[in-house]
Write a protein that binds this DNA or RNA. Structure first.
Lengths: 203, 203
DNA sequence: TCGTTATCGTAATGATCATTACGGAAAAAT
DNA sequence: ATTTTTCCGTAATGATCATTACGATAACGA
């Protein structure tokens, strides 16, 4: 019983997510959040808890709703397909919305006051979880034989993630989708292949 | 005439630089800055101006004193040498100081409140200036012939910077120097070369 | 219709932020 | 020795921060 909630919690969370995406955790104030959601402060507190709890909910939603291409990618037949699919979708996501470019998961990792340390650690964990999934998929690719036995899944996963992070930074700096696509293709140009060595030795 | 300054301005700027490196522009408070420098607030203001001016001075010093490997790299004989030298030194710099990992120039680019927008733009500019130098060097490499005529200096420079940014993010996330070195080597694998095509056609 | 219960918006709370007013202290100039 | 000039540190300023107390409002059960 009691009075009903007058706002849509899901929509408010979506709006808050966009604010965090653009400004990061500490850069987003409750003034920003109330303006974006159309919900007054006490209502946000009662619905989501404090700022950190709201951010963690937004981060989880971000992985569910925007980084949904990651689990899809892992199902593709070869490691190269996986990498290409992730790169393509990440670039699309990082440039889809002009008002919040880059990656929410990266935009808050780098710097902040001591009070935000726990949030930084949460973002680092989430990043590592994604990299772990990719690494395990690449280990499978070695067993499958679409990666050469000399390939190092650890290194390849870290390399792919590095390029993804770099693309996120460049997207935030205003790079066009075309430019980022070229960067992604350059990263794939180096991709190790099992079927044919790149050595130029004649038989 | 008048009283002499009791603190070393250069040393104070160095200390402030480290605070910004670790916490970013907005994450660093004057409480942090006075503690790190050992200089009281009004003295910092009289010596450097306000917080934004202090940050800009620190940024310039960072490029001069820590990113000095960039101009050195540009003098190397081939584009691949340039890229390898930059990667190696960037990794070393990003992991040299455990208390402030990653790159000062990147740590503040990504997110922040609206008040910090001008600082963000300054960091984006500085990043772009570095990329431009590398691109021009790669254009020279095409003329020199150590990059094939099919190579795209724009893309190669952006790719190299993307990997550098990604490495900065990973350094901030706690990656070891060894892991980052492997990432850098992966980026250099199959670097475009003019002397021998990677095609496997026999003559 | 009335009492219970939950949500609403206004406005307050205390902390921290960047910035500076101000008076004492020290060094040069007269 | 006194004046002038500059710097030092204390402590204040107003703004903004996240968080919440509180009274009004609205929906339910009885």
């Amino acid at each position: 019983m009691g009075r009903h909630r007058e706002f849509d919690v899901e929509k408010a969370l979506d709006s808050a997510l966009c604010v965090f995406w653009r400004k990061g955790y500490e850069g987003a104030s409750y003034a920003d959040l109330t303006e974006a959601t159309g919900v007054e402060r006490p209502a946000l507190y009662s619905a989501f808890g404090n700022k950190e709890a709201l951010f963690r909910l937004a981060l989880a939603r971000y992985y569910d709703r925007y980084l949904d291409y990651l689990p899809e990618a892992l199902l593709l037949p070869t490691a190269r397909d996986v990498a290409a699919y992730i790169l393509h979708n990440a670039i699309e996501l990082n440039t889809r919305y002009p008002e919040h470019t880059g990656c929410l998961g990266i935009n808050g990792v780098l710097a902040g006051s001591d009070e935000a340390e726990s949030v930084r650690l949460a973002l680092i964990d989430a990043r590592a979880a994604g990299e772990r999934q990719i690494r395990e998929r690449f280990e499978q690719a070695k067993t499958d034989g679409d990666l050469p036995s000399t390939a190092n899944p650890d290194t390849l996963a870290a390399f792919l993630m590095a390029v993804l992070h770099g693309i996120a930074v460049q997207a935030k700096a205003g790079f066009s989708r075309e430019m980022l696509t070229a960067v992604g293709e350059q990263a794939l140009a180096n991709w190790p292949s099992a079927s044919s060595s790149v050595s130029t030795q004649s038989p």
